[in-house]
């Protein structure tokens, strides 16, 4: 198997979970990494999860930062999502207000990142609470479409589409990697310099 590993690159990505309190951010991460469901303690600060995906073209390592959702923590949140490659904006399909919060998160990320710097997914969690649904699937879908976000409805409890959304993120990140390489080989590395200098001026 060594020859395979030699050709197949490994990419490490920081992925951050954002969204209101008790929409199921920690539960999503827990389901994805441990394939289990348990009620989590309210996150204070941040929790961490790692997942490795062995895909055909590359190995993807996700470093998942699971943040505190309560608005109280908002003023320090930029410290958590700084340098992220992907963000999951999670809302609860049984709580309309949480979608509005997710939209605010998007505005904030747009201020911090350029569109090609981060992959953003809108995630409507708790599909197991179908009877209490307040947000129609189409509403989330339409918003994601107009903003150019990945979109999926999930249930951390029943395991519905949890792997799928992370897989979609991995595919999108790899697609961008490929695009970057092809642009680089065309222009001989000048874009990389540009990106870096931009990143430097933007930090702090």
């Amino acid at each position: 198997g060594t020859s395979l590993e030699e050709i197949r690159p490994t990419y490490t990505y920081k992925v951050v979970l954002l969204g209101s309190t008790s929409v199921g951010k920690s539960s999503l991460a827990y389901r994805y990494v441990k394939n289990d469901f348990k009620e989590s303690l309210p996150t204070v600060g941040c929790s961490f999860f790692t997942q490795i995906l062995n895909l055909e073209v590359a190995t993807v390592k996700f470093e998942i930062w699971d943040t505190a959702g309560q608005e109280k923590y908002h003023s320090v949140c930029h410290l958590y999502y700084r340098g992220a490659s992907a963000a999951l904006l999670v809302y609860d399909i049984a709580n309309k207000e949480t979608l509005n919060r997710a939209k605010l998160w998007l505005r904030e990320l747009e201020k911090e990142f350029l569109p090609d710097e981060i992959v953003i997914a809108l995630v409507g969690n708790k599909t197991d609470l179908a009877a209490e649904r307040e947000v129609a699937t189409e509403e989330g879908q339409e918003f994601a479409r107009t903003e150019g976000l990945l979109f999926m409805e999930t249930s951390a409890k029943s395991s519905h589409q949890v792997d799928d959304i992370f897989m979609a993120i991995a595919q999108e990140l790899l697609k961008r990697e490929q695009e970057k390489t092809s642009v680089l080989s065309q222009r001989g590395g000048s874009t990389a310099d540009l990106r870096e200098s931009r990143a430097r001026t933007r930090c702090c």
């Binding site: 204070v44 600060g45 941040c46 320090v76």
Partner: peptide
């Protein structure tokens, strides 16, 4: 803030 929030706040 990244590591001491939970320690200190709780």
């Amino acid at each position: 803030i990244l590591y001491m929030t939970e320690w200190f706040m709780c």
